[in-house]
């Protein structure tokens, strides 16, 4: 306890504490996010969903009438209508 406080002004431990808290929180948050971002494993499910969406778009031109490949397409992407509209 005394070791922690010696660096601050003796009369102002109360005003120093919120700043230190803020710095600590920022440090921990930055470290945590950096760790997670760097070490995250490949999101296989998201990749599959993205692949299906792109395959839908690439094959759409001639295969819009075939029911099988279109059956599992889910309207999960809010921005896809405008994007498809722009490309068609």
């Amino acid at each position: 306890m005394p070791g922690l406080r010696t660096s601050g002004l003796p009369e102002a431990p109360m005003s120093f504490s919120p700043l230190r808290t803020l710095v600590l929180v920022c440090g921990v948050a930055a470290t945590a996010s950096a760790c997670v971002t760097i070490n995250i494993y490949f999101p296989a499910a998201a990749a599959e969903k993205a692949a299906d969406r792109i395959i839908d778009e690439v094959w759409q031109l001639r295969d819009a009438g075939s029911p099988a490949p279109r059956s599992n397409s889910v309207p999960d992407a809010p921005h896809s209508p405008s994007e498809k509209g722009a490309e068609q």
Partner: peptide, 11 residues
Amino acid sequence: FAVHAQGNLEV
């Protein structure tokens, strides 16, 4: 961050 990374792939 985990949820963000898992939810979507930027395409």
